[in-house]
Simulated scan of single mutants.
Amino acid sequence: MTANLLEFDLEGLAVFCEGLGEKRFRATQLFRWIHQRGASDFDQMSDLAKSLREKLKSTAHIAALPVVSQHISQDGTIKWLFDVGDGNAVESVFIPEDDRGTLCVSSQAGCAVGCRFCSTGHQGFSRNLGTAEILAQLWFAEHFLRRHLQTDERVISNVVMMGMGEPLQNYTALIPALKVMLDDHGYGLSRRRVTVSTSGVVPMIDRLAQDCPVALAVSLHAPNDALRDSLVPLNRKYPIDELLQACERYLAHAPRDFITFEYCMLDGVNDQPEHARQLIELVQRHGRQGLRCKFNLIPFNPFPASGLLRSPQARVQAFAKILLDAGIVTTVRKTRGDDIDAACGQLAGDVKDRTRVQERMAQQRSAEIIRIRPVSN
């Protein structure tokens, strides 16, 4: 079986090329062709020696994930469903804004954490994605969008590992993927513009700080252990104080001088004034002058199995005001892609009914990808 070159960061690709008897600089040339130009045909790579191109044809390939479907929201958000084999599929979401283009990337097929408010978690866990499967989402989306928008400029400026799965439970595949995103010969993204979101895998937060520190977002969702235990089961293993201590340690290495706390607003569950005051006390007792952080309040996207409702907007704003009055930077996330189930916590969509997904995969393999209208960026 030939190697999918999307599996390698630059160092891994250099080792692969050396195994073919080639100099390391050839890996840089090849890396640029793959990631900067989106090439998948070795014959396109005109500055590579013909002898190397022939070697690559027999030992390697560059393969995106098959696209099962793509949907476009009225607000310009695009959601892709990718086939990762054995009846499994993962989703990626592109969110265009005036000053950035953000791609939300999946790291697992399903999720084992099982947060109560997340529809993705309710479908269960199938498997980890490989590095090539993580990067294939970015590789496909970036070069599809460049062709679609008829531009040679980079379209995706930010990547958030906030799609399906818990990234830090797939650490071995995650780190090489992050390195490709950051590499100037790859996508050249700033560490500040690549975000790993975690539900709180404490030992891996510490490892990430040493191996590849990028922006960190922590799915907090509750101000105390009793409530968080019921919403985020991982809290029973890594309770809040332990998690916030890891966040303190991470700040010494982080490209940003704050940690983002994600907080999904659930009607009557975690959205009361006393919950906001507990959050203030929580962050103030960590660090010398309180933990440097930002809160991102997320409107809940209801689904039947959760038994939960979205907090009223007035209550969300009142909650935000309590945090802001205490000097804590707080934003309320604008919902995007609701009409195509691409909003936060909704990335289960078509994956939930596996029989239906397999049927659609079979149909799509012989059909053209749906054509979509231009997206403003």
Results as ranks from 00 to 15, higher is better:
224 N>K: 10
237 K>M: 05
208 L>M: 15
166 E>K: 11
249 R>N: 15
234 L>D: 06
203 P>R: 12
235 N>Q: 03
182 L>S: 14
163 G>D: 02
194 V>R: 02
216 L>P: 01
249 R>T: 11
196 V>P: 01
165 G>S: 03
199 S>F: 00
245 Q>Y: 09
240 I>R: 02
164 M>V: 01
234 L>F: 04
177 A>P: 09
177 A>R: 08
202 V>Y: 04
211 D>M: 10
246 A>M: 07
172 T>R: 14
240 I>G: 03
244 L>G: 01
203 P>A: 08
248 E>T: 12
169 Q>T: 13
169 Q>V: 00
252 A>W: 02
211 D>P: 05
197 S>V: 04
174 L>M: 08
210 Q>N: 06
235 N>Y: 04
197 S>M: 03
194 V>T: 06
192 R>G: 07
208 L>S: 02
237 K>H: 11
252 A>M: 09
196 V>Q: 01
210 Q>W: 00
231 L>T: 08
247 C>G: 08
249 R>W: 00
202 V>R: 05
252 A>I: 00
161 M>T: 00
164 M>P: 06
209 A>K: 11
200 G>V: 12
211 D>F: 06
170 N>H: 08
170 N>A: 10
199 S>K: 03
162 M>H: 04
191 R>A: 13
160 V>C: 05
173 A>L: 04
186 G>Q: 11
166 E>S: 12
177 A>T: 10
219 S>A: 10
191 R>C: 08
249 R>K: 14
198 T>G: 05
218 V>H: 03
213 P>W: 06
229 D>S: 13
242 E>W: 00
231 L>G: 07
209 A>V: 09
209 A>Q: 13
176 P>N: 11
178 L>W: 07
225 D>N: 15
167 P>S: 11
223 P>Y: 04
171 Y>K: 10
225 D>M: 05
217 A>C: 13
181 M>T: 08
168 L>A: 06
198 T>A: 06
186 G>A: 12
167 P>K: 07
215 A>T: 10
214 V>I: 14
246 A>Y: 03
175 I>S: 09
251 L>E: 04
160 V>Y: 02
207 R>G: 00
161 M>S: 02
252 A>E: 14
204 M>P: 00
252 A>T: 11
161 M>L: 15
206 D>Y: 01
249 R>P: 00
228 R>F: 13
188 G>P: 09
169 Q>N: 14
233 P>F: 11
168 L>E: 04
169 Q>G: 11
163 G>Q: 02
204 M>C: 00
215 A>F: 00
171 Y>P: 04
171 Y>S: 10
169 Q>E: 14
193 R>V: 08
187 Y>F: 15
172 T>M: 00
194 V>Y: 01
200 G>T: 09
246 A>P: 08
188 G>M: 10
213 P>C: 12
222 A>V: 11
163 G>R: 01
223 P>R: 07
243 L>K: 08
247 C>V: 08
215 A>S: 15
198 T>Q: 12
247 C>P: 09
177 A>Y: 07
188 G>V: 04
182 L>K: 10
189 L>N: 13
180 V>F: 05
222 A>R: 12
238 Y>A: 10
243 L>G: 05
172 T>E: 14
167 P>W: 06
243 L>Q: 09
180 V>C: 06
189 L>C: 11
